[in-house]
Amino acid sequence: MFLQTIRPILKPRNPSCFLSPLCSLLQFQFQPLRPISRTNLPPRPKHPPESEIEESFLKGSGPGGQKINKTNSAVQLKHIPTGIVVKSQETRSRSQNRKIARKILAQKLDELYNGEQSRTAIVGDYKKKKAASKAKKSARKYRKLAEEKSAAAAGLTPGGKETISVIEQVEEEEDDLDEEEDVEEGQEDYILQNTHPNKDTS
């Protein structure tokens, strides 16, 4: 409620500086109110130190040398503190697979420790939202086309031209409403995100 009342005063860009004294008073960790965008995603997680990793080369090891030629380049990592095991056999290059396996491990640990605040969760949310908005837009487009078609069919009857123009006007108004809805939905999301840590502390 508090946030909703002050929302009109907030500048969209960097409100954290404006709110920081308030936040410290309320013991509230404030995250910038910027919408999640492609450039605004959390950084890729870093893999744990090598001392916490147990590495093994599956099947690639064992008897080898000149007398055997194996193509298996799989790399398996075990994170000792958590017991998470990841494996990569994506490329033919073992050194490439070692890098990929470390990336996967870092991601898994990020998910484990940060849950909904992890990069994968946020990226997933972002993608879901994008897909939803795309679906919404395409549905709107086809609905409009279908309506135009039916209107054109109706337009064959006398006095049709006028009805078409009326329908178009109505559609445009609806479009504006839709866009506003989009924005509002987005803002609610930021507020939810921001109040989330507050809920935890209380």
Binding site: F57, G64, G65
Partner: peptide, 17 residues
Amino acid sequence: GSLEILCRKGVLIPRHC
């Protein structure tokens, strides 16, 4: 390693070990 080695019949293929 990080290199890509060309292989042709008549020359031994580099091994993982």
